[in-house]
Design a protein around this nucleic acid. Structure first.
Length: 585
RNA sequence: GCUCCAGUAGCUCAGUGGAUAGAGCAACCGCCUUCUAAGCGGUCGGCCACAGGUUCGAAUCCUGUCUGGAGCGCCA
């Protein structure tokens, strides 16, 4: 099955050449979904854009295009409207045939990619010895969804968890570990997971207050970097404990990552410095080795340096990022590198990439993308905190969502007089709670800040996870009630589209590929949410107007197929958001 | 001081060059003897922050202003 819009584009390109000659070969036909359903399904705006170039009135251009346009297998005869819009209506027979093919295709008519790209998605990236908190929520959820979508399209994706597992903070952590938990170094599992936040706070407090502790910590950093065995053992211990805590969250969120932290690049840092030196970019300033940046100034208006090596010989995260960037291109052979971090790091990436480009490390074939997102805010519009003003632990946040989903469910069961097993209740509550958190985040344009509200995300009405899950459940209800295996219908099944709502649903189902290719380009998962929400709405409208099980043949089978396609598209689409479906709820 | 991001209905947000700017929530009015009403239909609601500019055409692109957020030399 070929993308309808791609086919139409080809036809328009041919028509443009046929009408106006080879000079117009490769002209974008500006073909887009119609701005309003009353104009049809698709429209081309190319005629207006060519008025100057061709020196003819747009309507005349549109007429010439339409005369040379061969789309009779796909569309009704095109019409020209307004200043020169060319409107297209898909033929019923074409839609019906496309739906039959979609029904027979395991990939719902999304063709496998011709040119998969080696892609790195760098996301989540929590810090060792700190628990994951609300600040990691967006990177983790958005990054996972982007990775899932690119994987589904056929790209070769490496999901990198760029953990904060190295740096000066380990001096105080190791020193504190040695002094406060001496057993931990000799006995397995002596350090409990939940202690990590407290542990970090204690270390930080001592570091801030105790001069001697500070000095010991400084020496510990040196020992760690020098490869001291005991220091490394302590460091490993902290990392292992943290991995376990992270994995608990990743399991709950159903997220898969490859752990490759900053420490991985340690051996590569001196080469970064050497190469920048050789490229003539390094300047020594106040004892630090820097690259002065184009287009960035400090508060005094002087050029801003990017510090590559500190005056004490240590390295910063910019150096690590440079090393990582080079490794990803040279060793991982990445062609597209996607960084999912908060918008506040935009400058940092621009700076690091500028240095990498000036050092000629980035081939033209490699695309670097920062996928920024806004901060999570409470309902008061301020930074999201607990009542006592602490950062919200991700575990607590997710538990709260699940527990609220559970309460809603139990209230509802009681109202309806339903009896369900404990297993059912806990499963539904978990899926609904986690889905709600994910969907609420993903459904917003990630670039703006995001106001976190349990009440809104768990609401049963509106653009929420429960609404979408319910649409899926309704379809499973039809299947159960009718005792029908919806997947049984083959490519030769009858499809008849008569009602308005059937037609609208059918057309929406067939545009799944368009939304996915848009996301492949701009990495905006909220487009997929919008698509799935509209799909659910259109299904509910269809469900409201069109009886399925009681319908006469051939409508009955046709409607069963439409329902099945909706369910499969919902399930696939939600899977790309990292959300599971339920059979009943 | 500089850089980046944002500003669209009462609220939360879609909409990055096309026709009369959309949705959800909230408010109000309807629809359950029929596949789960967690649904569907309707009403109300806009100076797209402001001012210029580019264009056949601007919420969308450019310039400036205002407001909010984030960041800006040895933390990540």
């Amino acid at each position: 099955m070929n993308s309808t819009i791609a086919q139409l584009k080809e036809r328009f390109e041919q028509a443009l050449v046929a009408a106006f000659g080879d000079a117009l070969a490769g002209t974008d036909p500006i073909l887009v979904p119609a701005s309003n359903p009353k104009f049809g399904d698709y429209q081309s705006n190319v005629a207006m854009s060519l008025t100057k170039r061709l020196g003819k009135p747009p309507r005349a251009i549109a007429e010439a295009i339409v005369q040379n346009l061969e789309v009779s297998d796909l569309c009704e005869p095109p019409t020209i409207a307004g200043p020169g819009f060319i409107n297209l209506n898909l033929k019923l027979t074409y839609l019906e045939q496309q739906l039959r093919q979609m029904q027979a295709d395991a990939r719902l008519g999304i063709p496998p990619l011709k040119q998969p790209k080696r892609t790195i998605v760098d996301f989540s990236s929590p810090n060792i010895a700190k628990e994951m908190h609300v600040g990691h929520l967006r990177s983790t959820i958005i990054g996972d969804s982007i990775a899932r979508i690119l994987e589904f399209l056929g790209h070769d994706v490496l999901r990198i968890n760029h953990l904060g597992d190295w740096g000066t903070q380990f001096g105080m952590l190791i020193t504190h570990l040695k002094q406060a938990y001496p057993d931990a170094l000799t006995t397995a599992n002596a350090l409990a997971l939940g202690d990590l936040t407290t542990f970090y706070k204690q270390a930080k407090q001592r570091f801030d207050e105790d001069e001697q502790f500070r000095e010991e910590s400084r020496l510990e950093v040196v020992a760690l970097q020098a490869g001291n065995e005991e220091s490394l053992r302590a460091w490993h211990l902290l990392c292992e404990q943290s991995f376990l805590a992270f994995q608990e969250i990743y399991d709950l969120l159903d997220i898969c990552v490859t752990n490759r932290g900053e420490s991985f690049y340690n051996p590569l840092l001196p080469a970064v410095v050497e190469d920048l030196e050789q490229a003539g970019l390094l300047v020594e300033d106040q004892g630090a080795k820097c690259v002065f940046l184009d287009g960035f100034t400090n508060k005094e208006g002087n050029p801003l340096p990017l510090i590559i090596q500190k005056s004490d010989g240590g390295y910063n995260y910019a150096t690590t990022d440079l090393a990582a960037l080079r490794y990803r291109i040279q060793q991982d052979h990445a062609e597209r590198i996607i960084y999912v971090t908060d918008a506040g790091q935009a400058n940092h990436f621009t700076q690091v990439w500028q240095v990498a480009r000036r050092a000629n490390w980035i081939p033209d074939s490699v695309e670097l993308v920062h996928v920024p997102f806004g901060v999570v805010q409470g309902e008061d519009g301020k930074k999201f905190k607990t009542r006592s003003g602490d950062t919200v632990r991700l575990k607590d946040l997710l538990d709260e969502a699940v527990s609220r989903a559970r309460t809603d469910l139990e209230t509802r069961l009681q109202e309806e007089g339903r009896q369900e097993s404990e297993e059912f209740k806990s499963h539904v509550a978990e899926v609904v709670g986690i889905s709600a958190v994910k969907y609420a985040d993903l459904s917003q344009n990630r670039t703006s800040n995001y106001i976190f509200s349990y009440d809104k995300m768990l609401s049963l009405q509106g653009n929420t996870a429960p609404y979408l899950l319910y649409a899926y459940v309704r379809i499973q209800g039809i299947s159960r009630k009718g005792g029908i295996d919806l997947s049984q219908f083959a490519i030769d099944c009858p499809i008849v589209l008569q009602e308005e709502t059937e037609l609208a649903l059918a057309k929406h189902l067939l545009s799944f590929d368009e939304v996915l290719s848009a996301i492949e380009e701009d990495l905006m998962p909220n487009r997929l949410c919008q698509y799935l929400f509209e799909l659910s709405q259109k299904f509910n409208q269809f469900y409201d107007r069109c009886p399925v099980l009681q319908a006469e043949e051939p409508q009955r089978t046709s409607r069963l197929v439409l329902s099945n396609l909706t369910a499969r598209t919902l399930k696939q689409g939600l899977a790309l958001l990292g959300i599971a479906v339920l059979e009943r709820m």
